[in-house]
Nucleic acid binder design. Structure first.
Lengths: 182, 182
DNA sequence: GGGTATCTATATCAGGTTGATATATATAAT
DNA sequence: ATTATATATATCAACCTGATATAGATACCC
């Protein structure tokens, strides 16, 4: 997905600074996508130049100033056009699509070169890690206000449910079949 | 995972040309990882310079010449060292780790900006796509001889089983919950 | 025979992204 | 006072991808 469309999509949930957009990627979005500062800041500048977003400099007490970007009517139109135009291209991506770099699967692929105890430790820690992820996706308590807008999206509820189902079935498979790797 | 380690790992399954390594990434590995020619060829040259692989130029009838690379003892040692040294870093990557760019999930995130019929079509085609993927992972018939070495790995059987379980639970969830996106 | 399409095979490079780093303000802890 | 941490913006070298170039060989069509 074009970085422009993605930033506009996140700004459609409410005005944000570049730093806050990055926080969204490090929070609930981190399992599906991420952009670095080196991409986010230049993208926001470009979007501002082309009037897809407007910008207000905000002085804050107790924190450095920040630039808060607001999506414009022109920006919303571009976002919707882009989403609609590219929708069919995204069908074949994602989990078992074409954008994944899974180093864990590569490690499993070469499992026979690892000492038995190392493989055992790796699998144990992977299970712990996935259980932790599961808790994160199931967590329903309070979140920082910036992230609340994401949480409120119906689509996020769907995605969290899907992630939960996938992790649970993955855990289940690993616990039942890990013996096959030895 | 370092590209060096990855190429050495694939060469540990048998001698291959750069083109054939690329074919492995486009075949059964495509859902977990990929490297482009722009990475593969320079990596093989570097590995050859440093004696981690040896190279034979092969004339073929009916096809252009190819350079076939064979992993050396020194190369196998490096590969094992690297796998062992980096194993713990790979635990938190992969599906619901930190290396995923899922454009399909992003599209779902912004589902409310899509016309109802478009979303419906997208979900239908995604289901068809995943069913096709499922068939690919379950397929047990003959494969080109280059890819047979991968197929024979115990770890590949484990990974294919895991992928199958994940896709099935994802399909199941999507079919039961897609109404929640409207 | 000429056109073109496809497959095998290697190589290179512009363009884009990341991860690291720099800079700065402010709070909190030692 | 200094060290660490959080907020906040910005930049850049290093790296990778996707595209493109080149080339030998087969195959099909008119």
């Amino acid at each position: 997905m074009q970085k422009d469309t993605l930033c506009l999509g996140l700004l459609s949930l409410g005005p944000r600074s570049g730093y806050e957009i990055k926080q969204m990627f490090e929070g609930p979005l981190s399992d599906f996508y991420s952009l670095s500062f080196g991409t986010i800041y230049p993208t926001l500048n470009k979007l501002q130049d082309e009037k897809y977003v407007s910008c207000k400099q905000l002085s804050q007490s107790k924190k450095p100033d920040k630039k808060v970007y607001t999506i414009t009517k022109k920006g919303k139109d571009l976002m919707k056009d882009n989403l609609l135009g590219d929708a069919s291209a995204y069908i074949r991506s994602g989990n078992f699509g074409d954008q994944i770099k899974s180093e864990f699967f590569l490690l499993l692929l070469f499992a026979r070169y690892l000492p038995k105890e190392t493989l055992d430790t790796v699998l144990n820690e992977r299970v712990l890690f996935l259980r932790q992820k599961l808790e994160q996706f199931k967590y329903d308590g309070p979140v920082p206000s910036d992230l609340q807008a994401l949480r409120n999206e119906k689509s996020v509820a769907f995605i969290r449910g899907l992630a939960t189902a996938l992790i649970e079935s993955g855990l289940n498979y690993m616990e039942k079949n890990r013996g096959k790797l030895n």
